[in-house]
Simulated scan of single mutants.
Amino acid sequence: MAPTFPKPIKIIFLSILLLIKIKITYGQPNQSILVFYMQDVGKGPNATVLPIIGIKDKVWSYNTFGTIFAVDDPITLTSSPTSTQIGSAQGIITVTSQDGANVNIILSIVFNNAQYSRSTLEIQGTSRQHENLRELSVVGGTGRFRFARGFIVFETISYDASNNQSIIRLTITLETP
């Protein structure tokens, strides 16, 4: 003979099972991969990344511990600098390792195109700047990317040392609720 349970316990048990089913069915995040290009210019009248402060009597550079840079790089659809601009990467880069190998990045990708207008992605982490592929965290977002989590891979696809100009592919893997 099967055990019998009082009616309130049966109701509670069935309610818990229903909530678990709802969470499994409807609580799965959506994953997407976005690819954009960052146009980074460090010299000249159209510079988009500039040192703003550093250690007194030291050269302010990407290899000098303590140097802090302000960034406002265009984000484009393709690697061409004349490609459609869909936003900008705005934030701060700080050289945080004594040997200059690592920088800490706090960056907001601010979109201005129709598809993602008024949305942002928030990027944060340590970038091993002498490596071609650098992975950082996506820690949040606004608008279409509200509650986003994931990671971003920065890949330098070209660098012109004479103009201090880089084109960086941004491959963003996101999970949104």
Rank of each mutant, 00 (worst) to 15 (best):
P3H: 05
P3C: 03
T4H: 13
F5M: 05
P8W: 14
S15T: 14
I16V: 15
L18Q: 11
L18R: 07
L19G: 12
I22Y: 04
I22A: 15
I24T: 13
T25G: 06
Y26A: 06
G27C: 02
N30T: 15
N30Y: 15
Q31T: 15
Y37Q: 09
G42A: 03
G44Q: 10
A47H: 11
A47S: 14
T48A: 00
V49S: 01
L50T: 14
P51W: 04
I53V: 15
I55A: 11
K56T: 15
S61C: 10
Y62E: 09
Y62A: 08
T64D: 02
F65Y: 15
G66A: 08
G66T: 12
T67N: 01
I68Y: 03
F69Y: 10
F69Q: 01
V71A: 09
V71K: 02
T78K: 12
S79D: 09
S80C: 03
P81F: 00
I86F: 04
S88A: 15
S88L: 11
Q90E: 09
I92L: 05
V95K: 02
T96Q: 12
S97P: 01
S97H: 06
A101E: 11
N102M: 09
N102T: 03
V103D: 00
I105S: 08
S108C: 08
N113H: 09
N113A: 07
A114Q: 05
R118D: 12
S119T: 07
L121E: 01
E122G: 09
E122K: 06
I123C: 02
I123Q: 00
S127L: 02
Q129M: 07
H130N: 15
E131R: 08
L133Q: 14
L133H: 12
R134L: 08
E135K: 11
L136N: 05
V138L: 06
V138A: 04
F145W: 09
A148G: 03
A148I: 01
A148S: 10
R149H: 12
V153P: 06
T156Y: 01
T156F: 01
S158I: 14
Y159S: 07
D160R: 05
S162D: 10
N164L: 09
I167A: 00
T173G: 07
L174M: 11
T176W: 15
P177V: 15
